[in-house]
Design a protein around this nucleic acid. Structure first.
Lengths: 110, 110
DNA sequence: TGTTTATATTGCAATATTACGATATAAAAT
DNA sequence: ATTTTATATCGTAATATTGCAATATAAACA
C-alpha cells in the first residue's frame, strides 16, 4: 500500500488529481502567485521570495513543471519559469464545470 | 523533515493548498464528480462506485470534509454527503484570478 | 432483544512527500 | 583558466499518505 491506485480511475480523473496535487503545497501556491505578480520571468528570485532552501525550491518547481502548470526556458545562465496556460485552463475548467452544475440544482439536498 | 512548513506562508496560501491537496487524488476527484452527477445524496453508493474498500472511501470522504469541499448530514442510518459550495468557490476563485491576470499579460515571456 | 445495515475508527505495512546539506553542472564574468 | 552565479541532482532523515483487515458504533428492522 501507500501507492495511489491510478489504474482504476479514468485518465481525466488522474490528470485532474495530478494538477490539484501539484498545487497542494503552500510553497507551490506561492510560486504560482509570484509568477503571476512579476512582469519579468527572471526566476532566481523565487528562491529569495520563499522561506525554503534552493534545493527545496528547485524540487517544487520541478513538480509544478511535471504537472504541466509551469514551463521553464533556459536563458543563458538562469532559467525563465512561467505559467503554462493549458494546464491551468484544464483544472480551471473542472471547477467551472462543477459550479455550472451546482447552479442548476441548488438547495436540492443537505 | 517531511512536514510542510506552513508557518512561513500566508493563511490564504495555506488554505488554497489544503483545498488543492484534498483534490490531489483520483478517488477524491471521482467522489466530487459522483456527488455532482447524482440527484439524490444517498451516499452508501459511493463505496460501490469506487474500486476501493469501505474504510478507504470513508477516509477519503473525511479528507474532503476536513478541507471544506463536502459536507455530510446524518439521515437516520446513513449519511448524506454533498458538495460544500463555499469551499469550492474559494478554490475556483483562485483559478479565475490567475486566468484574469494572464489575459492581460499574454505573450510577454517564455 | 438480536440481527442487519451503514459508516467510522484503529492499527499497521507499503509507499510518497518534504526538506536540506553536499555535490554536480554549466554558463558568465573576471 | 579560474571563479562566480544559477540551477539541478543525490542522499538521507523525518513525516505524511494510501489502503485494507479487523473492529467499533449506532440506527433500523425483525
Amino acid at each position: 500500500m501507500g501507492a495511489t491506485k491510478t489504474d482504476h480511475f479514468t485518465d481525466n480523473q488522474n490528470q485532474l488529481a495530478i494538477l490539484a496535487k501539484a498545487l497542494g503545497h503552500p510553497a507551490r501556491i506561492a510560486i504560482m502567485e509570484y509568477l503571476l505578480k512579476v512582469d519579468t520571468c527572471i526566476c532566481g528570485d523565487i528562491v529569495n521570495e520563499l522561506p525554503l532552501s534552493q534545493p527545496t525550491v528547485s524540487q517544487h518547481l520541478k513538480e509544478l513543471k511535471n504537472a504541466g502548470l509551469i514551463k521553464g526556458s533556459i536563458d543563458g545562465n538562469s532559467i525563465c519559469y512561467c505559467i503554462n496556460e493549458p494546464g491551468l485552463e484544464k483544472i480551471k475548467g473542472f471547477f467551472e464545470h462543477i459550479s455550472a452544475h451546482l447552479e442548476k440544482k441548488r438547495n436540492e439536498c443537505c
